[in-house]
C-alpha cells in the first residue's frame, strides 16, 4: 500500500493560536481516511493544509512538510493553482456556483485552459456519470445548479471537483447538510470513487466513519492522537483519550 500523502511535523498557527501541533500522518492511496474529533480540534484545518486553502487565511503560518507523491507541496515555487487541481475539495454545505450544471462542471477545466467544446462536453459527461447525475431527470446540462436538490447539489460539487482530474478528494463533513437517505447516497458514491481516488473525509458522524472509511484518525486540541484501521480504532483504540471520546459520543 503506497502513501499518496505524507505529512511530517506539521505545525500551524492562526496568529498566535496554534491550530495544529506536530502532525505526522500518511494517507494511503485509494483508501478512505476519516478524521474525527470534537468541534474545534483542527480537523478542517488539517484538511485545508492538504490543498493549501489555509494560505488564503490572513496571518496563518505553517511549518513542516506535506509530501504529495514525491514533492513537498509547501516547497517554495510550488504552483498552488495546479496543486488544487490535483487535490479536489468538497465543502460542508453544497456550494454550486449560480451557473448552469454544465458551467459548474466545466469551470475547473476552463480555468486550466480547456476551450474545446467537444472535450469539455466529454469531461462534463464523464464527471456527471461518475457521481450518478448523468441523465437524471431534472438535471439537464443547462439547468441552473441552484435548482437541484441538496443531495444533487453536493453530487454536482463532487463532479465539479472530479472534472479537474484530481488524485485526491478532500471532503469536509460533506453530508452534514443532507438527510439520512442523501447521506447514504453520498457514502455509496464514495465507495465507488475510492477505486480511483484517495479520499480524506472529516466527519462528526461516528457511524459514518465506521461505515464508510478504511482508516480513522482521532484529533484533539490540534493533535492527531492516533490513527489506524477503522475497525481497530472503534473496537480497541490504544489511546485512552480516543476510547473516552468514542465512549462519550456513543454512550
Amino acid at each position: 500500500m503506497t502513501d499518496k500523502i505524507q505529512v511530517r511535523g506539521l505545525d500551524l498557527f492562526y496568529g498566535t493560536f496554534q491550530g495544529l501541533k506536530q502532525i505526522t500522518v500518511s494517507f494511503p492511496a485509494r483508501q478512505i481516511t476519516a478524521l474525527i474529533g470534537p468541534s474545534g480540534c483542527g480537523k478542517s484545518t488539517l484538511l485545508r493544509c492538504l490543498n493549501r486553502m489555509n494560505d488564503l487565511v490572513a496571518g496563518v503560518k505553517i511549518t513542516g512538510t506535506v509530501m504529495l507523491d514525491d514533492a513537498d507541496i509547501y516547497a517554495p515555487g510550488t504552483d498552488v493553482e495546479s496543486l488544487r487541481r490535483r487535490v479536489g475539495m468538497v465543502f460542508q454545505r453544497p456550494n454550486p456556483f449560480p451557473l448552469s450544471v454544465f458551467d459548474n462542471v466545466a469551470y475547473g477545466p476552463r480555468l486550466h485552459g480547456e476551450r474545446n467544446p467537444v472535450t469539455l462536453r466529454a469531461i462534463v459527461n464523464d464527471s456527471l456519470q461518475a457521481v450518478g447525475l448523468l441523465g437524471v431527470e431534472g438535471v439537464g446540462l443547462g439547468q441552473p445548479a441552484l435548482s437541484l436538490s441538496g443531495e444533487q447539489q453536493q453530487r454536482l460539487c463532487i463532479a465539479r471537483a472530479l472534472a479537474t482530474a484530481p488524485d485526491v478528494l478532500l471532503m469536509d463533513e460533506p453530508c452534514s447538510a443532507l438527510d439520512p437517505i442523501a447521506t447514504a447516497g453520498i457514502e455509496a458514491l464514495m465507495q465507488t470513487l475510492v477505486a480511483r481516488y484517495t479520499i480524506v473525509i472529516v466527519t462528526h458522524n461516528m457511524a459514518q466513519a465506521m461505515r464508510a472509511s478504511h482508516r480513522t484518525g482521532f484529533m484533539l486540541l490540534g493533535e492527531l492522537v492516533e490513527i489506524g484501521a477503522t475497525e481497530r480504532i472503534f473496537a480497541s483504540a490504544s489511546d485512552e483519550r480516543t476510547r473516552d471520546y468514542l465512549a462519550g459520543t456513543f454512550g
Binding site: R85, F91, P96
Partner: peptide, 18 residues
C-alpha cells in the same frame, strides 16, 4: 456574494482574478 462561492472557485485552482 457568499464566501462559499469564492472558496469553491479557489479550491478548483482559480486565481483570485479568475
Amino acid at each position: 456574494v457568499p464566501k462559499s462561492y469564492r472558496d469553491g472557485s479557489r479550491a478548483l485552482g482559480a486565481t483570485q482574478w479568475q
